[in-house]
Amino acid sequence: MKKPRKPGGGRKKLKPEYDAGKNLKEQMDAAVSLYKNNSLQAIADALSLNPIKVRKLLITAGAYESDIAETVQHTFYKYRETQSYKDAVLSTASELKLSKASVTSYLPYEKGVYFPSITSTEKISVGAERQRRYRAVKKLRAAPTEEHLWETVLIYQKVRFKTYSGLPFSYEIRKGRSGEYTKELWIDRRENSKSLAWSSVLLALGNVKEVGAVVDRPKALGDIRGVTYIYGVFYRFGLIDVPDEVKEKMNKCGCVAKS
């Protein structure tokens, strides 16, 4: 006679300590840490993986970008709104004339750890965070639009900046009751905090005549409230350059090494 099955019983895991999600994250963090100075093949060799898996790990971490990856993901998520994962892959493959394997190789892992660009920095590795900032700044410099500036400002919250005179500060953007970010930067300057309106930041952006050109002093960006902070932020983002004597104060102690 069969013994009744105990509640919660069943086949024991062969490897109870095995955690697929944890292992995937460890592989992803390792790939990201090597990505800056190595090719996909070099990373694959170092981690004993194939280059396609390395690329997929980097895509999952939000650290890899290319025109084809962006096209595949954009097309896939368009179909994913109304189709299952499998059908969306097939539709994407059909539209872009790619194989199913090619499409999935440019998509992040569905299970495990996917960190889109809006994920809190506390949940991603230092390497992934650095890559995220680098990509955002690169995009902003190429096309200094409000959308790209906002994306970069969000990513650089709580990062240390310096003013024209070399005083350190950081900022954060708070959320309203709806859970959405408010268009206001709260400047943390030692024990004091003051707000900086987004409209002021945009006004200064409009006064940047040429990306990367030297701006002698904050007031050259306009007679704007809080412009001394905007000046420091724009320098860090590479939207402006500053005179050598000012650069020395802003870069002292390596606090504002540009990403």
Rank of each mutant, 00 (worst) to 15 (best):
Y164N: 11
W150R: 09
E122P: 03
L107M: 01
T75S: 13
S99I: 01
A93D: 06
I124Y: 04
I155H: 01
S120M: 01
H74P: 01
R141M: 03
I118R: 03
G112Q: 07
Y77T: 04
A128F: 03
Y85V: 08
K111F: 11
S120C: 04
G166V: 02
K139N: 11
W150M: 05
Y106H: 15
H74G: 05
K86Q: 10
I118V: 11
K56A: 08
A46K: 15
E147W: 02
R130K: 13
V159E: 13
Q73K: 10
A101R: 12
I52V: 15
K53T: 15
L58G: 07
S94G: 07
I155R: 13
L49Y: 08
K97R: 11
E65G: 07
R132L: 12
G62P: 08
S102F: 05
Y156W: 13
K158S: 07
S48V: 09
Y64M: 04
T119L: 12
I155N: 02
L149C: 08
K139G: 01
A93S: 13
I43Q: 11
H74W: 01
R160M: 09
L57N: 09
A142M: 07
T152G: 02
S117V: 03
R55K: 15
P116I: 05
T60F: 09
L96P: 01
A136E: 03
S102A: 14
Y156M: 15
L149I: 03
A61P: 05
P108N: 03
L167S: 13
V159H: 10
S99H: 05
P51A: 10
L40F: 11
T75C: 12
T104M: 03
K162Q: 14
Q73H: 04
Y85E: 11
L107D: 04
G62D: 09
N38M: 11
N38I: 00
Q83P: 00
F169L: 06
Y64H: 13
F76A: 08
Q157T: 07
Q73F: 04
R135Q: 15
P144S: 10
V103S: 03
Y109W: 07
A63V: 10
Y85I: 06
Y85H: 15
I124G: 02
Q157H: 00
F76Y: 15
L57K: 08
I43N: 11
Q73N: 06
K111G: 00
D87G: 00
W150F: 12
L98T: 07
T145C: 06
L98R: 02
S102C: 05
G127Q: 06
T82C: 02
A88W: 02
P108Y: 07
K138F: 00
S117M: 03
V113F: 14
Q73R: 15
A61K: 10
K138R: 13
R133P: 03
L167T: 13
K56H: 03
Q73I: 12
Q83M: 14
L98N: 04
P144L: 13
Q157E: 12
Y114S: 08
V159R: 10
V54C: 12
L58E: 08
A46I: 02
Q73M: 13
Y77G: 06
A88G: 05
I43A: 10
I68P: 02
K162H: 06
